[in-house]
Design a protein around this nucleic acid. Structure first.
Lengths: 242, 242
DNA sequence: TTTATAATGTGTGTAAATTACACAATAAAT
DNA sequence: ATTTATTGTGTAATTTACACACATTATAAA
């Protein structure tokens, strides 16, 4: 305890000067928004509006304001750029190389989200905002390729630990759609019978008592995901292992 | 393509003014350093030198300088505060609530490391720097309890996916020590025979042809971890499942 | 020097989970 | 009525996880 006295205790004022000193850095958020359509995993991109990267594709990003929480900044940016709301965003990684931005030091925090393309129509389309096939992305602005890759890896891992994928599907979906989704994300074929078995065993799917419409073959049963039941039993969720 | 012309392209100069504007935020790094000693998981803490938190324990942290990479900052801070080097640090999460620091806006990036307490003697002991039992931490300064918890969760998960734990052990270790380590991190008892079986099956342990010394019972075999072989076969590593 | 103690080191049977795999049923399109 | 495409289901084989017991080896105590 005597050592406390020997320490150089910093007062609030002293700290404030440190915090407000030149030691400040521009902080940005970049969002990687995944969607699922036509049995393909998609990602939402805009044309970069930075001269150095003209023509290249870019993630949805902006600077964080000094008075806003990091998470709030991510939601704000997404809303501003796309009109999207009512979704969840999850932080993935922070990219802090000094050389990553041509205009100076900008540290960027990457956020990831999964949304259903049909339910979330884009309301703003500036800068050629649109969906791109996830496995055909290349040659992005800044270090956005690295950020995208990190988020894609995160998604592949995360989707096997938590039932995130359902956020990409319509409320009602067939097991075939669900399997297509997992196959798209994990980029591998899965056995249909074992896939079914696995998901029914989890017991989080609710039979809607309806079948698919307008399909040129035997229609499949429609299900919804029981998010409430999942939330209650979260601890018991063993993950999915393919 | 015509749309590019309609866009408001930002020149480098314009960008620079944005980046250098008031939109800047103090950025810090906080390090959670885990160690293992006396069969207990430990973590390295100092007394907070901030008046508001006098007497409370704090992680090792400092502001990131504008001209240093985020990762480099983490290594520098660790070196400065403890004299430690030759270790790996991994980024875990970024904490960005506006209210987390009493002196103003400071966003903090948490880094985690695992070191062997014997091999890395602390060279600086300012602010009562020392090892604390990980499961007895409470009442920390700032939001450091939340940061610590996040890192502890990260460790529990990570250690089952990658052979991180070996960084906490001496070069040569017995299987009992290895098991003690896993039991300490995961906070549960494991079956000795199955534990052995699992690690031998991985085939990354090298028999050193020596036994333990000075133990009051039958000495156990000493092994080392074959990092090189692991690096080569990384893709095949299935993780550890207890 | 004998005995007690406290570990290490090993093998086997059982249960559980995962995988591979084939055929009947259904609706739509022709 | 036939073809086509896809849904829906069961079982056997294999792999993996788990529970468990006993002989061995060194130290410490008597």
């Amino acid at each position: 305890m005597s050592q406390i006295k020997e320490m150089n205790i910093k007062t609030l004022k002293g700290l404030q000067s440190e915090v407000q000193s030149i030691n400040r850095i521009a902080l940005s958020v970049d969002c990687v928004i995944f969607g699922f359509d036509e049995n393909k995993l998609k990602v939402l991109l805009i044309r970069s509006d930075v001269k150095k990267f003209v023509g290249k594709w870019s993630l949805l990003g902006d600077l964080v304001k000094p008075e806003e929480d990091l998470d709030s900044a991510a939601y704000r940016i997404l809303k501003q750029r796309t009109g999207l709301k009512d979704l969840f965003l999850e932080q993935v990684h922070t990219f802090g190389e000094t050389t990553r931005h041509p205009a100076g030091r900008v540290v960027s925090v990457a956020y990831c989200s999964l949304i259903n393309i049909q339910n979330h129509r884009l309301k703003i389309l500036d800068n050629e905002l649109h969906w791109h096939e996830a496995d055909k992305i290349s040659d992005m602005a800044f270090d956005h390729q690295a950020i995208f890759n990190a988020c894609y890896n995160w998604l592949q891992k995360r989707v096997q630990e938590h039932p995130l994928g359902f956020n990409l599907l319509p409320n009602k979906f067939s097991l075939r759609e669900l399997q297509n989704l997992y196959e798209a994300i994990l980029n591998k074929k899965l056995d249909r019978r074992n896939f079914r078995k696995k998901f029914f065993a989890m017991d989080f799917l609710v039979d809607m008592g309806e079948d698919e419409q307008n399909v040129p073959h035997r229609p499949g049963r429609l299900y919804k995901f029981n998010f409430e039941k999942y939330e209650k039993n979260k601890k018991k969720w063993p993950g999915i292992d393919f």
